[in-house]
Design a protein around this nucleic acid. Structure first.
Lengths: 220, 220
DNA sequence: CGCATATTCAATCTATCGATTGAATCATAG
DNA sequence: CTATGATTCAATCGATAGATTGAATATGCG
C-alpha cells in the first residue's frame, strides 16, 4: 500500500508488540524482568538458553518498546520499560485463563490451589498487615526482595523455608507471595507451612502486579 | 522437553495468544468484532482481503480463544469471546502509546487532537448525559449502533453527518464517539461540528471500551 | 597496549507464517 | 436430490522467525 492509513500503521506497530509477547521464552524473560533489572547472562542462565539466543530475544523485546537496557561497566542490565507492560501481561493472563481451554485446564490442575488456598486480595493484605494481624512472607530470592517488596514483609527464599520456620511468628497467619500468578513458589510455601501446622494463605498475584496497582513498595 | 514445567506450558499457551494479536490484519478484525458479531464475508470486504485468507486468520483467533463463532443458517458469525479481550487490546494500546516511539509519533501526528479536542472521560459523559446537559452522538454505521450503544445516544453515521446536522439540538454540547481509540470517525465528526459552529468534544475511546468498563449499554 | 569478560552482530539452517488457489463441506432453496 | 452460496480445508510458494555457531565490539584491568 502506498498510502497506508494511520490506523493501519498504528496496528502494524501494535502487531510488533503483539509478536514480541508471542513466544514462551520471551514471556519468561518478561516475568523475570518484572522482578527487577537483570543482566543478559543472568537471564540466560535462569532460563537455560544460550547467551546469544537470549540477547537476540532481548533485542526483539527492546525493539518493540517493552524493555529498556542500561549499560553499567561491562554488562547491560535490562528492565521493563514501565508498569503498562505488567498490565499488558496481566491482561494476557486473564484472557488465557478465561477463554483458553488448555490454559484453564493447566491452571486448574497444577494451580488448583488458586481457589483452594483462598488467595488474599491486595487491599485486604495491606489493611491486615498494617494492623499487625498477619505476617507477610516474600519467598523470592534475596536479590529480588532487595529490589523491592511489600512493606514489612519478611524474606525467606523458598529453598530455605523449611529450615528457617523459626523465623516466623507461630500464632499469626502467614500470607506468602512471589513473582506472579504463574510462579509456583508461593503455592509451595503455603503447602509447606500448612503441613507444619501454621495458618497460611497466598496473596493473589505477585510483586509486579502489586507495584503496578500503585500499592506501596519498600526498597532496600 | 520431556517434562515441561506447568509454568512453561502455560507460557507456551499464552504465547499462542500473543502470536494471535501479532498481526495488523488480526488486530483490525478484532477491532471490528469488538463492535459486534460479523460474518466472514462482511469482515473480508471491510478489511479488503480475500474470504479464504480472512477465514484463515479467524481460525487462528479462534484457536487462541480470542473469538468464538456461531452458525446461523449458511453463515458463521464471529464475536469476541469476552470483555477480557477488549481489556487486552486496551492494554496493548497503552503500552504502544507510552513506550513505542513510532506509535507515539503516529498518535501525535494523526490524532493530535487526542489532547486538543479535550476528550471526555466516560464517567463525566454518563453524568452529564443523565442531566440532559449534552447530546451523545454515535457516528458508527447503523448496524453497529443497533448492536449496542450508549443510552440516549443519537445515531448519525459519519457520512451523513453534514447533511443531517439539523437532527442535532443547536445549543447543547455534542459528545461524539465511535469504535475505539484508533478510529478516526469521531475525530472527523468533532472537527466538522466545530467548523459548523457547534460545541463538540470526543469521548475517550469507543463503545467496546465503554462496555468493557461495565457501563450501561442500550441494545435495539 | 594486550588480554579477559560481557554482549551484540552476522551467517546459516530449519521451521513456521501469510497469501493464493482450488477443492471440499455444510445449509438452504427450488 | 440438485444447485447455489458461505465457509473451511488442503496444497503451494515466498518470506520471516528461532536456534546455533563463530566473529566483532565494547569495557575494564594489569
Amino acid at each position: 500500500m502506498r498510502h497506508p492509513s494511520p490506523k493501519r500503521e498504528i496496528y502494524e506497530n501494535l502487531a510488533r508488540i503483539g509478536g514480541a509477547i508471542g513466544s514462551a521464552l520471551r514471556l519468561e524473560l518478561l516475568e523475570l524482568l518484572a522482578q527487577g533489572e537483570r543482566s543478559v547472562e543472568q537471564l540466560a542462565t535462569t532460563t537455560g538458553t544460550s547467551v546469544a539466543n537470549t540477547s537476540q530475544h532481548l533485542q526483539k523485546l527492546r525493539q518493540s518498546g517493552l524493555i529498556v537496557g542500561r549499560r553499567d561497566g561491562q554488562r547491560v542490565f535490562y528492565r521493563l520499560s514501565g508498569d503498562e507492560v505488567v498490565a499488558l501481561l496481566a491482561a494476557l493472563g486473564r484472557v488465557g485463563e478465561v477463554h483458553d481451554a488448555e490454559i484453564e485446564r493447566l491452571v486448574r490442575v497444577y494451580l488448583a490451589s488458586k481457589d483452594e488456598l483462598e488467595p488474599v486480595p491486595a487491599r485486604e493484605l495491606l489493611e491486615r498487615a498494617r494492623k499487625g494481624l498477619v505476617t507477610v512472607l516474600d519467598v523470592r530470592p534475596s536479590e529480588e526482595f532487595a529490589a523491592g517488596h511489600v512493606p514489612g514483609a519478611v524474606n525467606i527464599p523458598i529453598q530455605q523455608l523449611e529450615k528457617r520456620l523459626g523465623d516466623l511468628p507461630k500464632r499469626k497467619e502467614v500470607i506468602a507471595y512471589c513473582r506472579g500468578p504463574y510462579c509456583l513458589m508461593s503455592y509451595d510455601a503455603v503447602q509447606l507451612l500448612r503441613k507444619k501446622g501454621l495458618k497460611a494463605r497466598r496473596l493473589v498475584d505477585g510483586l509486579p502486579e502489586w507495584r503496578a496497582a500503585g500499592l506501596p513498595v519498600t526498597q532496600e
